[in-house]
Design a protein around this nucleic acid. Structure first.
Lengths: 222, 222, 222, 222
DNA sequence: AATGAATGAGCTTTCATTCAT
DNA sequence: CATGAATGAAAGCTCATTCAT
């Protein structure tokens, strides 16, 4: 522990070109599941290894330690989300389209991979400082800022009301989104209708409410 | 963590009449601080004891175990919030008044006791099952339902739009509120103006946005 | 590991006045034995705890970690030796008396507590850098220097030959002493005679040889 | 560490005729360095492999396990020393010549390969039983006995004093030699003069001291 | 011969919980 | 009520060793 060791022989960060080993992937996936299920401290390396069907030590072959593993989990999930946000932001459409696109994207992903979304959303700001100090907070801030930029652009075209600070608006929107997902996860929000369409119903109502909150004064048309 | 052991001699729940011992209070306060600072698992009994300036073992004199201690922390905070919500709900005023009253109340409390609010809000639904199985989730659900009732009442009078499920509306509102508080805590939301008024600026914008989101079709008057 | 923790509640360094707890002593003694038996890395905390008849965790109640424990072992043993060396150096007698006093002291201690001496002598310079960086190397250097001072004083009075650098002389003397003890421990040096007197025979011959090596030119009288 | 597993296909001891593979040599050299640097337990196979610039598994191709590797290191070093001792013992000259020859040889080797000497000397008798049970202690004992034979021969011719048990004398001499080398390594013994001659100065003084210690009564002549 | 991914036993360390005083 | 020494189950991490390629 105290003895100064030379650096590891095995690479913990993959060389940028090489294809990712299958087992590394398996570990990452298992980590997402266990993490989502039990949270940071409840997530034992032993569980992850078992869940991935690999030996205990292999986790440490691919990741320096628990923190780095979980950071990778975050990083991976956020990378996906950020890419999507960026694509939506830079794509065509009005600010309203983009906001509703973001809400829709997250809820759609949730429909197919609830655990991943849980990890992404539910654990933000709840995990030890250390972990966040890596990449996450940065990335979370980035997500807010992207949405804030959308809002700001909408304000400049007169589409959105300009009496709300863009960052605050973005924060509120993401908050509503997060809590809605949380509500779905914990069973507080129980949409009606056939299971296939439940999420879509929620999506529609959430979009309507959020857009009404940020749009410039107008007669709501639906 | 929840291993059942032999029963204790000393009562852990105070007799309803007796005044609360000073040190019990100190422990509770320290627990709030430490919990807010380090989260559930990072919150060690040793830290709490030191923070309260009492001996290690005394914590176990007043609380059966760590879970019960932290549950008490939650219970206490939520009791305050629920009472306030209840009072607002049952008080006079329109639905809009009541919603804006809730937002204002939380942000006002935040102004004077940010840590307590952080614990209350930030850790909701993020704590191990064990803890939640006690009383917290119940109370959190209650909070949502109170707000949902306010929404429903507003819908029935035609004040609020009725195309949004009340529980979903309440969830979204609380989500926006939570994330805003989180944003303030982590420095993401940085209000302008003199420190005294910063929170009020945020409050005004948040209220405006939220109300616009749930009000029935109208010309916004500000 | 990475999370910044506040310092421990329990004191690892004893307050200078308080009497040393019995169990702390037991742990230290056990550590000496196990350490002598198995060396630094072979010395498992579990063994020490078992040897001391205490619970695993108690070791960590009194010592921050393994390094600190073993450092304490060293520190304690060296403190005794250094005190003895100092006393001999500052006491009365010729340089020869003092040198033979040092050799005799170590061999006498060895007679009654071979393990302790083994730890003291055998592990010098063999233990990880970390451990030594605490106090040991310093103290070992001090031991050499004390003996070197004795030599130098002897050279100045003409009692000892002055064509040998005092530090080198001291080093050689302590080396001969160490290897002799090692030889006794591993059974290489097998003194003859009744067990009671074996060590004394060795002592006599070692003293004779060493003194002859450093005394100024003279007719040996025996 | 010594768990018996299935036998290996590849021979670990080289056939006596075949030339030693280059990489085997590299591994052995690296092992000497790492071992000298970090000691037995600090010497990890990974370090050795990296130091030798070969793949992890290759170490296990040439050596059955860690113990055998390190034993080979010892064996190799000791083989050199023993051969030299033997040559000196069987060569011409007085006992004094031979003793001074041994001291000189070790210090000369030290001048050119300090690490190797460190391994050889510094780790004697300090390594776990397992390792010693192989060949080393045997060889160390042999070294002492060779020197003891030299002493005994000198005593029989009347050149050396006969009131000291030859094995004890040999032990003391080697101890003084070891500690001197240790002192040089750790910087305790700091010879004066130009770097080229420093070791020779030490050699001269050490020889003078040692010989005075074992010679029969005489007027020292130098 | 050579590689390095894969395995898992073993060890250190932490910390909730108990208990004698 | 109050104290803090004592306990021991758990979990993180290391590294010798194996094995498929």
């Amino acid at each position: 522990m105290t003895s100064p060791r030379s650096p590891r022989a095995t690479p913990h960060r993959l060389p940028p070109d090489a294809p990712e080993p299958e087992k590394r992937r398996a570990i990452l996936h298992a980590a997402v599941r266990v993490f989502a299920e039990k949270g940071y401290h409840g997530c034992r390396i032993a569980d992850v290894a078992r869940g991935a069907g690999v030996a205990y030590g292999l986790v440490y072959h691919y990741f320096k330690n628990k923190d780095e593993l979980l950071e990778s989990v975050f990083a991976e999930q956020w990378a996906i989300l950020l890419a999507a946000l960026k694509a939506i932001q830079e794509g065509p459409g009005t600010a309203s389209d983009k906001i509703s696109g973001v809400l829709g994207f997250v809820l759609d992903v949730f429909k197919t991979a609830p655990t991943a979304v849980r990890v992404l959303i539910l654990e933000v700001a709840r995990t030890p400082r250390v972990l966040r100090s890596g990449s996450t907070p940065e990335t979370f801030f980035i997500a807010v800022r992207i949405l804030a930029d959308v809002v700001k652009a909408g304000q400049e075209t007169g589409e959105l009301r300009d009496d709300i600070e863009p960052v605050l608006a973005a924060t509120g929107i993401l908050g509503a989104l997060e809590m809605t997902v949380t509500g779905l996860v914990v069973g507080l929000v129980r949409p009606v209708g056939p299971p296939e369409e439940q999420i879509d119903v929620v999506k529609g109502q959430l979009v309507a409410m959020v857009l009404a909150g940020v749009r410039a004064q107008d007669r709501r048309a639906g």
